[in-house]
Structures are given as structure tokens and as C-alpha cells.
Design a protein around this nucleic acid. Structure first.
Lengths: 192, 192
DNA sequence: ACAGATTGGCTAGCGACGCTAGAATCTTTG
DNA sequence: CAAAGATTCTAGCGTCGCTAGCCAATCTGT
């Protein structure tokens, strides 16, 4: 029994090692540099061990994405806590969200751009995903007017943030006016 | 002289053939199926001819993206023309935009998701790109209140549409509530 | 303590990718 | 008609994600 549990412990540890290495490699050199060979070298095991933990490269990216959602949820919660009022909370969360996308582009891509085999808008979605969405919901809900579904309004607001973040990062929107666009968005969602 | 021009004509024709084949292949089987070998087989030339026309696969995708922008601009213009009022124009264009993203996902990805070597938010941007953006600008400009920069407001509105389209297509937003989310967005941008 | 069974990691390799060098072919020109 | 030039093709390089099958270390039972 004890031997079995020790083995499982070591296996779990190695699995975390894989995910961490993948995330760090992606964040420092981009996802293009995260090849199975390179990742194997990074964790000092041979290539096929990766496939005893994950079905394939996509599954590893999905695991990184879940970690990223947890990170994002923490940042959003902090931003929300530090803001004095309802409108300030919305602005702080929006700013933190797009800042996250800019500071950690590889992580953000794994979470919201790349196709990863993860359930999203269902109850089976991993806890960190629902947690991150919950932080958005918490700041959007108070600004929903009567008759508006807070969940759908949050989804819409999220989509706007996501669009700003991705279009800007790919050079399709100039970075210089980012703050102004964010202010415009918040203004229109708070009925200003 | 005439021989030279005939050659250039034939070259241009083959270049269009490449772009069209790439687009059709992408639209029917997705970009993953668009390999240089497959594309070469499709146009009935060998692989290296592709590189005498384009620097690489990315450049071919960029050419497809430009074509896609022209298509989108046409659709947006038609939607705008068929709408009776300012608010209806905005709704029609927004609906057409997200519908385009849904109907032609591969084309949309080349235009706005994949990294393609194209200048976007500058004056050197290809005409079809500026044309498509112009159609958005034409419907957003009238709903900009005093003091709001119409260009930046259009960028923000575009980002929201882009976010809705991409998050929905990747399964991160449920498709069922799409119309409601669109209505919420338009409502908030028209100050309703 | 040792032979047999089992688990688990490794070496080696498959097919496909984007891309390119150099041979081969076709066209134009003296 | 042959030399010169342009253009297309064959063949191959390095790398990718992924897997089959060998080998060694570990566990089990006597």
C-alpha cells in the first residue's frame, strides 16, 4: 500500500514538473519552442514519458491553461479587493485582465486562443476556469440593469476584453490607444 | 515586350490560382490540411513553385486573408445598405460580421486570428483591410457621442465582435445565447 | 536469497511537415 | 542549329508529434 502511494506521489510530482516546464518554456520562448523533444530534455526524461502522463501535446497545453486560469483568478481577485467602488472594480478588473494578456502572452494563448481539449461553458469546466469567470461575474453583476442576464452580460464584457487583448497583441490594434479604448468600453457598459 | 507581358500575365494567373486553391482547401478542410505538398498537388505544380511566388506558407495565408477582407467588406456594405436606420445598421453589420466568422471560420482565422505578416493599423495596410474597417466605422461613427473618438470607438466595437466570434467558435462561449449577447453589446453601445 | 513476472523508461524509427539546393527541361537568342 | 538563359522538377535536409518494441530495474512467491 505504502509503496503504491509513494509511486503515485512521485508520478504526480513528475506530472507537475512537466506542466511547469512547459509553462516556463512557453512563457520565455513561446509555444513554438515547446516541442516534445525540448520539453523532455528540460525535465531530464526521454520523450515517451510525456505520453504516459498526457495524451499528447494538446493535453499538456490544456494543463498549462488550467494553471493559467488559476493565476488569472488570483490577479483579478486582488484587483477587485483593492478597488473602492463598483465602477472602480470593473475598471481595475478590466485593466488587470488585459495587462495579464500582455504580460503573459503564451499563457493567455493557451487559455483562450489555442484550441485545447477543455470543457468551458459547462459545469464540467475545471474549477480554475469557473473561478476566473466568477471574478469577472462579480464585477459585472452589479452594473447589470434590470432585465439583463448578469451571466450573459459578463460573457459579453469578457468577449470585449478578449478581443481588445488579442487584436492588440497581434498588432491589429495599435497599443498606444489601449487605455482610451478600455475607458470607452467601461463607459458604455456602466451606462456612461 | 509582348512576350514579357504575356509571361507576367501567366505568372499572375498562377498566383491567383495558388491563393484560390489555398482558400478553398482551408475553407473545406481547415488550415491544418493546407500543407505545401497538398497545395502544390491541388494546383498541379511541384512544391517549389509556391516559393517562387510567396516567401513561405505564412505569406500565402496573408494573401488569403486580404481576399477574405474584401469579401467581408462586400457583405458588410450590403448589410448596411439594407438597414433602414442608424441603430439597425449597427445591428445588421454586427450580425453579418459574426455570421461571417461562423460561416467561413478558416478565412476568418487567417484574417484575424493567425499571425500573418500584414500591416494592420497603419496607412500601409492593404486596401481591402481598410475597406472592411471603413464599413464598421461608417456604422459606429453616427452613434459616437460628443468627445468620443469615432475611430477608437470603432476599434473597441470591432474588438467586442471579434471576441464574441472567436470565443464562441472555440467552444468557450455557448452558441445558444449568441443573439442575446449581441443585443446586449449593441444596447450598451447605442446608449440603451 | 533467488527465479519468474511485471512495471516502466529508453532507443530507434515512422510518416509528414516547411523549405531549399542542384539537376533537368524548355524557351529564347545569336 | 547550338549556346545562353530562364524556369520547373527531383531529391533531400532537419524537425515535428507520436509509437513500437527492447531492456532494466523492481516486486512477488517460494
Amino acid at each position: 500500500m505504502s509503496i503504491q502511494t509513494r509511486r503515485e506521489r512521485e508520478r504526480a510530482k513528475r506530472e507537475r514538473l512537466i506542466v511547469t516546464a512547459a509553462r516556463e518554456l512557453a512563457e520565455t520562448e513561446g509555444w513554438a519552442a515547446v516541442t516534445t523533444r525540448r520539453l523532455a530534455a528540460e525535465i531530464e526524461y526521454s520523450q515517451p514519458v510525456l505520453y504516459s502522463h498526457f495524451k499528447g501535446k494538446e493535453a499538456i497545453m490544456a494543463a498549462v491553461a488550467v494553471q493559467g486560469c488559476a493565476d488569472l483568478a488570483v490577479e483579478l481577485r486582488q484587483a477587485r479587493a483593492a478597488a473602492p467602488g463598483v465602477r472602480e472594480e470593473l475598471a481595475a478588473v478590466a485593466g488587470t485582465y488585459t495587462s495579464f494578456a500582455r504580460r503573459r502572452p503564451a499563457l493567455y494563448d493557451a487559455m483562450f486562443t489555442h484550441l485545447v481539449p477543455l470543457p468551458f461553458a459547462t459545469e464540467e469546466a475545471p474549477a480554475p476556469l469557473r473561478e476566473a469567470f466568477g471574478q469577472l461575474l462579480a464585477v459585472v453583476e452589479p452594473i447589470a440593469s434590470g432585465g439583463e442576464d448578469p451571466g450573459l452580460l459578463t460573457e459579453t464584457f469578457w468577449a470585449a476584453l478578449h478581443g481588445l487583448a488579442t487584436l492588440m497583441r497581434s498588432g491589429r490594434l495599435p497599443e498606444s490607444a489601449h487605455e482610451t479604448r478600455l475607458a470607452l468600453l467601461i463607459g458604455h457598459f456602466t451606462g456612461g
